[in-house]
Design a protein around this nucleic acid. Structure first.
Lengths: 113, 113
DNA sequence: AATCTATATTCGACAATTCGAATATACGAC
DNA sequence: GTCGTATATTCGAATTGTCGAATATAGATT
């Protein structure tokens, strides 16, 4: 059971482990958005968008609703936004270190020519 | 910048996207633990443990400290536990559905023999 | 029914992840 | 220095994830 729970968590994180999928979820912060609108806003291929949406659906992170010949997506549980917000705090906390590391690498490369 | 943040989040989630790595982080809730102790508690191969620890180190999720010929690991920022705690709330909220799904799968398999 | 538009799925190529076995490194004890 | 213990890295094989192109499906319009 403990193992099953960890597997579920891992699967969930796996579903979030792609920048396009993060972008999709962020677009849904203020409510449902159609697949077509997502494609337009993110500037990605139609098939690719559909594949990523499929991943998020499979993990029950998104739900969809058909209206005419359009499909509207929304997040199933807004708790997921809390996770993303914490991640932003985490990123901000360590941003200076990240940038320092990047600069150090950059300088070292310039020294080497 | 927005893209960088998304990539950062995606990388972070990718690092958490394995049950063994989740188990490792859970073991570190109360403070640092040696690599050997982790291997013992999780019952996994030494090389495998080292590889997973390497992934978590690369993403700066874990830091380590050498003492004699042992290496002690700990989480860099306890904010990560907040993420896991929210995930636990998420799973509790949806646990009944998860269990229903699992039972349905189980029954279907038994029917098929 | 024919057709158009929106979305989903399949396919094949390529990249990334995961594992255990083997090997390498770091440190302490002798 | 050599040996033993703890940990890390490398290697090759198998699996999984990702992409765009092509194709399929669902519903609206005529």
């Amino acid at each position: 059971m403990q193992d099953a729970l960890r597997q579920f968590k891992a699967d969930f994180f796996q579903a979030l482990a792609h920048p396009t999928r993060i972008a999709i979820i962020e677009q849904l912060r203020d409510g449902e958005v159609s697949a077509g609108t997502l494609i337009e806003r993110l500037g990605i291929e139609q098939a690719n968008a559909s594949q990523h949406l499929s991943v998020l659906r499979a993990k029950n992170i998104l739900v969809n609703r058909r209206a005419g010949n359009q499909v509207y997506y929304s997040v199933r549980d807004p708790l997921i936004f809390e996770v993303l917000d914490i991640m932003r705090r985490y990123f901000n906390t360590h941003l200076s270190e990240v940038l320092a590391t990047l600069k150090a690498i950059d300088k070292a490369e310039k020294r080497r020519g």
